[in-house]
Design a protein around this nucleic acid. Structure first.
Lengths: 187, 187
DNA sequence: ACCTGAACACCGTTCAAGT
DNA sequence: ACCTGAACACCGTTCAAGT
């Protein structure tokens, strides 16, 4: 493990434990036994370090595809895994999709690769008629937008009135897939 | 206009012009011609001031309902207005749905009231068969989740590969309503 | 090439003091 | 009741200096 990796890991740990406010360059340096400005030898600035944390997060392995699995069910499982990740690691989720003032090639590429895997899963589901036909990129965008929005609203408690109306993010994923199934049956 | 309102307005203006980093208590105080800690006489701390900014944003008037409008079309227009607002004022959008460490009764109530109006619009659309039946809170959550996620992903450029795949947030709202229309026709 | 320590400008917050 | 000015602890960043 390089010092660079140590710094990224320490930043991720601090983020999980204390939220974004806990991720200071001084705390990161201390976690790896270095001074508070050692990170500047590996990253341009703090945002560059955070971009590396976000990239690492996007490169996490997706759910394994077992041969024989129904591609439509696998796609739905992928959407639910996305929601589960967001709810379990809110700080990482907010970081990845937060407001970046500087473009990071590493982050852009990781995000593109991650969505590419999702597009492949959509294509496979379309091949067996599990989801509506049409531009796979657009169907992917539809599913991702719903999963993303459901997770983000749930994190803020904005999904449904407390007690009133049962609407977990998981339920909404089910609802969307049910709508897509009837649309596919009809067309 | 009270001094309190002046402070909230100044914070909102700073947010729009320079993003969250520009909203410092010193800048807010200077904008209204007061010292850098005058805000403490009106708000508990910085987050409390930001909560007031977010509440004000949630209390903005929604699209007017003209008599004779198709309730389903009005509902779709409301969803698109939500997306338009998020894309036009990204900093306000991110603030409202950001990570709040302290609960604000004012913010909670404003959010609840805002979603309540949406639920009413869903109920009206259901009454004329424009959208699927079922728990209005849940249908609302489905539509809001999609609109919210589409807007948030679009702001980060994560909606579709550049050039490849046409998927504006507006298109995704259309797609969802098309799915709901076919489901309603079938059921 | 990588790291340190001092320094700078800035920030949120507190507090004693003023009217 | 509302505001000010000084002060405190903290932060990101820079820079000269060390190995």
């Amino acid at each position: 493990m390089s010092t660079r990796d140590d710094l990224v890991l320490a930043a991720a740990r601090l983020l999980d434990q204390g939220g974004p406010a806990a991720v200071t360059l001084r705390a990161v340096g201390q976690q790896v036994g270095l001074s508070h400005n050692a990170p500047y030898k590996h990253f341009a600035d703090k945002e560059d370090l955070l971009a590396a944390v976000a990239s690492r997060e996007l490169r996490r392995p997706g759910p394994a595809i077992r041969p024989g699995d129904d591609p439509a069910a696998a796609l739905k499982a992928r959407a639910k895994a996305y929601v589960r990740w967001a709810l379990r690691y809110p700080a990482r989720f907010k970081l990845v999709f937060g407001a970046w003032t500087t473009a990071s090639a590493e982050l852009d590429e990781a995000a593109s690769r991650s969505r590419g895997e999702f597009v492949d899963a959509v294509r496979a589901a379309q091949a067996v008629g599990g989801v509506p036909a049409g531009d796979p990129e657009r169907v992917t965008a539809l599913i991702l937008a719903l999963a993303h929005g459901a997770a983000d609203l749930a994190l803020g408690g904005h999904l449904s009135r407390a007690g009133k109306g049962h609407a977990d993010p998981d339920d909404l994923v089910d609802d969307l897939f049910a709508l897509m199934a009837t649309a596919k049956d009809q067309g």
